[in-house]
Structures are given as structure tokens and as C-alpha cells.
Simulated assay, not measured.
Amino acid sequence: MTIVYVLAVLAVLVPLATVPVLAARWASAVDTGRTAERVRVALAGLTAAFGRVGAALVVLLAGAAAVVVVCWPLGEAISRLEPHVDHPVFDYVHARRVGFWEDINLFISPIGDRYPLKWVTAVAAIGFAIAWRRRRWWIPLVAMPLQFVVEQYTQTILAKVVDRGHPPTDLGTYPSGGCGRVLMTFGTILVLAALTWRIPRRVLIGLVTALAVLVTVEGYTRIYAEKHWLTDVFGGWFFGTLLTGVMVLAVLVADGRVRPPRTPVDPAPSSDDRLTTST
């Protein structure tokens, strides 16, 4: 039973120790790297061709499709670990469940359910729309419900194509939707907050760390409450991180907050230009 409690402590301490370090060391490196510059060039081209809203929609749809492409083979691979990893972990936890600890986990775990996050989504959409009333108020009003829908359907597609089954005690499958929903909902709220107010860098890193702790704790409770296999939770963390990154990028594109590339992108030629060139 001690191991169960130790893992609960690690679910809090590991993100507390690692996320601030990763955010401080990698953020600037990622922002100034070649890949980031190539992404900015591509986004500038999309924006020139389709406008900010069109480019943001392309980013969101193409990004969600890319997440499926990446997470599909991952799900097939970890499904093979089920008899060697998931079943032993499930049996170990099942044999050591304790009343008071079970009650705590069953109380925390529904944070990632769709019903409470629907209310969080609605309140955040309205609240940020009011806060943005003097600017593009429609962005949060659209982004918050859209992130909920995109997460739900992307996770459903992965669950269908991988089709790995579920624990005998619940219908949870790959990837963990609870972990993905927590990341998507509060990750989108966090980026909207950062665009609304001037949040100091240290505070922002602290908020990202708090979100990481919430997600790891959610994953732990999903395992202890026997709602998911262990590998479903790891898959949910990976899936949620990728999809949240896509959503954040789409919001930044829609609001015009992506830094332009160092090399200017030539605008798409108009029909008159093409006609002149052909003649």
C-alpha cells in the first residue's frame, strides 16, 4: 500500500520539480530555433492566403489530424503492453484499495469529466468575451467551445481506430479523455488569460506548473479509481499535450500574436497579377 501513496506524492512532486526547469530552459530555445522559424514562415503564408481566421482554422484542423496520425500508432504499440503492464498494475491497485483513499480519488477524478468542464468552458467563454469586449471578443467566445468539441471528437476517433478495450470496472479507453480534457480546457483558459493580462513570466510558469500537477493528479486518480489502464493515462497526457499545443497555436494565429518570420513572405499573387504574367 505504501507504493500507492508514494506514487500519489510523485504525481505532485515530479511536475513541480521538472516543469519550471523545462519551461525556463526550453522556452527560449524553442522560440529561436530553426523549426520555430519554419513554422512562422508557414503561418505567415497561410495568413496571407486565408487571413487570420482562415489560417487559425487550417492550423486547428490540420493539427488535430496530425495528432491522430501520431497517436494512432502509439496507441497500437502500447496496447501490446496491456497483459504485461496494465493488468499487473490494475490487479495491484485493486487489491490495495482503501476506503478513505478511494473516496478522495473518486472526489477528485470527476474534474476531468465532460459535465463539469462544460460549465467551466461556458463560464470562461463568456468571461473572456466580456474582458475582450474592446478587441476581438469573438475569439474566446468561439475558442472555448471549439476546444471542447475538438478534444471530444479527436479522442473519440482515436478510441475507435485503436479499439483496445477497457478495464473490467469502467469504459475508459485509450487515450484518457479526462487527462486530455483537463489539459485542453485549462490550457486554453491559460493562453487566453496570458493574452488578456500582462502576467509576469514567473507567474506564468507557476500557472503552467499548476496545470501540469492537476493533470498528473487526474491521471493518478483515473488509475486508482479503476477508470483507465495505466497506459491509457500516459497516452492521454501525450495526446492532451499535443492537442493543447495545436489549440494554443490556433488562438495565437487568430489573434495575430505570432511573431512574423525573419524572412518576409511574399503575398499570394492576385488574379490580375497572374493574368499579367501569362500575357
Rank of each mutant, 00 (worst) to 15 (best):
L10G: 05
G51C: 09
G187N: 08
K227E: 02
P20Q: 14
V59K: 07
A159G: 08
G219F: 00
G165Q: 02
T277G: 03
K227A: 10
P88T: 15
T276Q: 10
V14Y: 03
V59N: 05
V6D: 03
L57R: 09
P167Y: 10
T276Y: 13
A62E: 02
R222E: 01
I199P: 00
I157D: 04
L230E: 00
I189N: 04
A212F: 02
A24R: 15
R274D: 05
D103A: 15
A48I: 00
I130F: 09
I78V: 15
G245E: 05
L46M: 04
T188F: 11
A56V: 05
P264F: 12
I78A: 00
W229M: 00
F148W: 07
H166R: 13
I199G: 01
V19S: 07
V265W: 08
T216A: 09
T241K: 08
D170A: 14
E76A: 09
T156V: 06
W119D: 01
T231Q: 02
T154I: 04
I205S: 07
A55S: 04
V58T: 08
I3Y: 09
M144P: 03
R202A: 08
A250D: 06
V30G: 13
A65N: 04
V93H: 04
T209M: 06
E37Q: 15
M184Q: 06
L13N: 13
V246M: 07
T18N: 06
Y92A: 11
G236T: 08
H84Q: 10
V191C: 07
L16R: 03
R34G: 12
I104Y: 03
Y220M: 09
G187V: 02
R134S: 14
K118W: 11
P73G: 13
V93G: 01
V41A: 13
A49N: 11
L195W: 08
H87N: 15
L7D: 01
G235E: 00
T216D: 02
F50E: 01
D273L: 10
D86R: 11
Q155C: 12
A64R: 12
V14D: 03
L183S: 05
S278R: 07
I126Y: 14
V69W: 12
A44H: 04
V182S: 01
L61Q: 05
A268D: 12
R134F: 08
I111S: 10
R202C: 01
T277Y: 11
T156S: 09
V203M: 10
H228V: 00
R34T: 06
F128G: 03
V68R: 07
T35Y: 12
E218F: 02
V98D: 15
A122D: 11
L106P: 00
S278E: 02
V161E: 04
P140Y: 12
T2M: 13
F90T: 06
P267T: 09
L192K: 04
T263S: 04
G127M: 09
S79K: 11
R96L: 13
G256R: 14
P167R: 07
A42L: 06
L106N: 13
P168R: 14
P269A: 07
D31K: 10
V251A: 10
F234G: 00
W101Y: 06
G54D: 06
R222G: 02
L249N: 01
V142T: 12
L158G: 07
W237D: 01
I126R: 08
